[in-house]
Design a protein around this nucleic acid. Structure first.
Lengths: 124, 124, 124, 124
DNA sequence: GTGGTCTAGACCACG
DNA sequence: GTGGTCTAGACCACT
């Protein structure tokens, strides 16, 4: 591991880390039963304080995403993928609303969609 | 003036206010040369402390969006609308990227776009 | 009248005006017994509020620089020129001290003096 | 750290503090990478409110003079020494102009210069 | 321990 | 009436 922290954001670092970890699980990059990296290792990898990682893991454990195994570390329990997707769809809807308010045309929006998803009839 | 403050957000209130005002200017709801509501009035309207509004206005003035007129209040100078739209397009691109990573189909995305923009060939 | 107000300064406008008037008297541009411009006229001339001028004149009257003549206006009483010069000499001393702290050489300072006063042995 | 605040000045305290800190950096009394005193410590030292120091530091950070390190404090980035000196030279020129207007002789001015810089041919 | 935000309220300066 | 500064103190987030 891995990942970019936005220090200029108002979102606290431990929260950014929580999100990232949930995402990795949702996307299958880490699997149920796997150990996540140890607090110290992850702290070093991404250059933040140990307490910050500790807090992220602790809260993920409270949410039932991780489970602490005494003396061994944290293992992945689960994460609800559907919730994630819905959250993103919701954000999409909101941003589209904004763009509409600013009179950005549907055509321009579709163009962006095709830049990301490709021009084919569909797939992906 | 009105507007909704998200107190549970990590984004500080004064920031939310700054954003809202920039948006209102960008959308033409407040025009160049207009006075924005006085600090005390806006503070009362949205139920936050005077200092919080003062900070928002002060920073907007530092950014060249507002200009303080001694003993009179703050008037609108300008705001770059294009910057705003680009910011939103960028966010759109990011969120579409996320959705693609989660294997949401282009078809489903287009469906959301049409929910917001309507099904017509284009415009909106 | 006449003069430039620095709106970006922290020094209040009425104080800037007081200074300017004292200076004009000290320099002999307005003489004892002269009327200063009426509050309204001066306010219009320099584009500030009537109350601001009123305050400047009122305080100058309290300091004995002006004298109010009911129904006629304010006339010049006096101003202590020596005090002014001493004030400026004091400022000069302070600023020279600063420049010395920054290791600006005496030669460079003298150069500035000669730019202002001319290169001749002396005069003025 | 120390320094003297002029409470009778029209210049706001947070401004005075900003100036003082910029000066200390310009003079090399604080160096790049150094931490400035913590907000609370400095506030206590000079007997002003925490918020006042916070504002000074925040604005210095916005100006690129300081940089905030989350949970650690503010470190010095830079300050343009030349800008400072030019500012003082400019003030010198202005004050000399005033003195000339009051018919203070060049000789008297030079006398003050020599009081500050010494009588030697040059250097210092 | 650090900084950040916010509040409530005071007092000043300007129009 | 406007904005500006400052205080005292609370509470939060991060190391």
């Amino acid at each position: 591991m891995w990942f970019y922290i936005d220090y200029s954001s108002h979102v606290p670092i431990y929260q950014q880390i929580k999100e990232k970890i949930k995402e990795m699980i949702a996307k299958g990059e880490i699997k149920e039963g796997d150990f996540v990296p140890s607090i110290r290792v992850l702290a070093k990898d991404i250059g933040v304080n140990v307490n910050t990682i500790a807090r992220a893991y602790r809260e993920l454990a409270m949410e039932g995403v991780l489970k602490v195994v005494r003396g061994e570390g944290y293992i992945v329990i689960s994460v609800d993928k559907a919730t994630f997707i819905n959250k993103y769809i919701e954000t999409l809807r909101k941003i589209l609303g904004k763009l509409k308010e600013y009179n950005v045309s549907k055509k321009d929006v579709i163009k962006v969609v095709e830049e990301v998803f490709g021009r084919g009839e569909d797939d992906s």
